[in-house]
């Protein structure tokens, strides 16, 4: 069993239909640790040591968040800037994260058709995630295909339940042997 850490970042969770469905699904998976970053750091005062300790204690990391302006919400950006330190996460002696797998779990307002060369977002969503992917790879971690919920604005209730179930399955796969980290322990 791989230990999975879900880092959840949503500044207005109470108003999000999709994440209110996804969060209970994530919490229900055995072996998953769920950290709600906006509850932990309501004033953006991220504590790097405890975040680093949480990362070290897990084999896989899931960043669950809405897709704001083709990127992460501001607290998650703050988290990246403060927690992924040189000499710990990357650089010559920065090996703490090596070999762990990373998956982003993203909700996007636009439909899959909007995230295409012909759509109004012009690029496929995984292409827009390239900066996040580069971040993960620079830290020596393995980039997993993202979990994406498209078209959240017009998702019916039944669709929400389906997506929650799909998310649960993804997390279970990550937690079981099939997706154990490939890297060798440093």
């Amino acid at each position: 069993m791989a230990r999975v850490l879900v880092l959840f970042a949503h500044p207005a969770f109470e108003r999000s239909r999709v994440h209110r469905a996804l969060v209970p699904a994530a919490r229900s998976v055995p072996g998953v640790t769920f950290r709600d970053l906006y509850e932990l750091y309501p004033d953006y005062d991220v504590d790097p040591p405890s975040e680093q300790a949480a990362l070290e204690a897990h084999d896989a990391v899931v960043f669950q968040h809405p897709f704001y302006w083709y990127s992460v919400p501001p607290l998650l950006k703050q988290w990246q800037d403060l927690v992924l330190e040189h000499g710990w996460a990357y650089g010559h002696s920065g090996t703490a994260l090596r070999g762990k797998s990373v998956m982003h779990a993203i909700s996007a307002g636009g439909g899959e058709d909007a995230y295409a060369a012909a759509g109004y977002n012009r690029y496929a969503l995984p292409d827009l995630l390239r900066p996040l992917e580069a971040t993960v790879r620079l830290c020596g971690m393995e980039w997993r295909a993202p979990f994406i919920v498209y078209g959240t604005h017009r998702l019916p209730a039944a669709g929400l339940a389906e997506e929650a179930e799909r998310y649960r399955a993804q997390l279970e796969a990550l937690a079981t042997g099939s997706t154990t980290p490939l890297g060798v322990e440093a």
């Binding site: 500044p11 109470e14 906006y38 509850e39 004033d43």
Partner: peptide, 8 residues
């Protein structure tokens, strides 16, 4: 029970 960030 308010979200802490919202309270903030």
């Amino acid at each position: 029970g308010r979200r802490k960030h919202r309270a903030h």
